[in-house]
Amino acid sequence: MQQIMLLVQYTLVYASVLTLVALGGCYSERSGIINIGLEGIMVMGALGGALVLGHISPALPGIVIFLLTVLASMVFGMLFSLLLGVAAINFKADQTLAGTAMNMLGLALATVIVKALNIASSGGSNNSAEIAYTATREKLLLAKGTEFSMFMILTVIIIAAAYILLYKTRFGLRLMACGEHPQAANSVGISVSKMRYAGVLISGALGGIGGIVYITAGVSKANFEIGVAGFGFLALAVMIFGQWKPHKIALAALLFGVFRALANVNSGFDFLTALKLPQPVYNMLPYIISLIVLAFTSKSSHAPKAEGIPYDKSTR
């Protein structure tokens, strides 16, 4: 029973991460920009959040710590996502290349910043890339000793908000129009580049929050040399599986969350230990599942029609 509780907790943690980041990817792609750089955005968001968690006083009320952490992650994620916006929207750069560079840049930049801070504060003796936040992290938990945190509540709110924003508001419909047929959107007076910036910035904010949720999952210190282990890309798989629709993305994230959680808690289940699968198999599982899922779902893709294509006014 205890094991099942643990599995549920980790599933929800990882599902939250994947939902947030996949929703971020969804907003960006709905506006027409492929965001391969989510991994880097996550790392930068995690950096912003971890800096707050590591330096804020644990005596403050939990909700204040929570809000400041989320705010910092969002701001870091959004600022970093501007790199994609500028390259893809203003300079019509190859979006895959810009995104890949952002992944490398995010990891290197976060490592350099954290190490530089550690070196400066320790006078050169500590050159690790770690930030510890044991006390402040506990404040974010809903119940001590579990993994249920305020982030999960936030995730549920964001899913609902994402659905309403995308389908029920003028902004959302215009955003989607820019991803489907930017020429048509532009011809009725919608600024494609503004909408695409909005999409990229929202993906930066959500990716940033996803980053802080990921690095605070189950551990009380973050090592920025490791990064986020391909979660940005798993989230893209979740997004495709969820067919770029917020509610389906949430369900897809739950499925992937279960498999990722099994990597953490498989040893507690009798029927799983009886299978005698080596640990690496569990580690590979989320990636293998997503490959299989992609193989079956990509053929009839519901991807936004104009994603990845720089908008050129003269093609109208």
Binding site: I36, G230, F233, A237, M284, Y287, I288, L294, K299, S301
Partner: peptide, 15 residues
């Protein structure tokens, strides 16, 4: 199968 090579490649990297 029309799977974006970037994503399948990343998955294979970790596997």
């Amino acid at each position: 199968l029309n799977v974006n090579e970037v994503i399948s490649c990343i998955m294979l990297n970790w596997i």
